[in-house]
């Protein structure tokens, strides 16, 4: 495929400039300039606004005592925030202390020794299942047979 040769194209534009455009534009510009010059010499033309000469005053008003009232409102809101913050810290402190106390009670209270936990050491020391049954009291055997009937073998 041949590469398109841009250089070979004409530099002519596909648009047209209106007839006498340049002459008319020149006249317009020249007459505008002369008008401006005339205005300037007459002192009538649009003067450039001097921002520095304007007052810094605002066209709005601030309500009377606004700053004092706002100060009180802000200070009371800050007091509320501080009180809430202190309460939150106290609450967190109490919750932490209560948790520590609960854990300490669980660890230190002699619940462990009074619980009826089977003595797995003595079971493992039994020579056989038969020996285990021989060591059982009549009530334990009764309980075992009742449970066997209930759950099946």
């Amino acid at each position: 495929m041949n590469e398109f040769d841009l250089e070979s194209l004409s530099r002519e534009m596909p648009f047209r400039m209106p007839e006498h455009f340049m002459d008319e534009m020149t006249e317009k510009v020249v007459s505008q300039i002369s008008r401006e010059r005339q205005h300037q010499s007459d002192g009538v033309g649009p003067k450039e606004l001097d921002l520095e000469s304007l007052s810094r005053e605002m066209p709005f008003r601030m309500p009377e005592h606004f700053i004092d009232e706002m100060t009180e409102s802000v200070v009371s809101r800050i007091s509320r925030e501080r009180r809430r913050h202190t309460e939150r810290r106290l609450y967190a402190w109490f919750a932490g202390a209560a948790s520590v106390a609960a854990v300490a009670v669980l660890l230190l209270h002699p619940f462990g020794s009074s619980l009826n936990v089977p003595d797995y050491d003595s079971i493992s020391q039994c020579a056989s299942i038969d020996e285990l049954f021989q060591n059982m009291s009549s009530e334990e055997l009764g309980l075992y047979s009742m449970m066997s009937n209930y759950y099946g073998d």
Binding site: M62, F66, I67, T71
Partner: peptide
């Protein structure tokens, strides 16, 4: 906060 409001409250507003 009171001092800030007194000194800068109005310019900030």
């Amino acid at each position: 906060v009171r001092l800030i409001m007194k000194k800068y409250g109005e310019p900030l507003y």
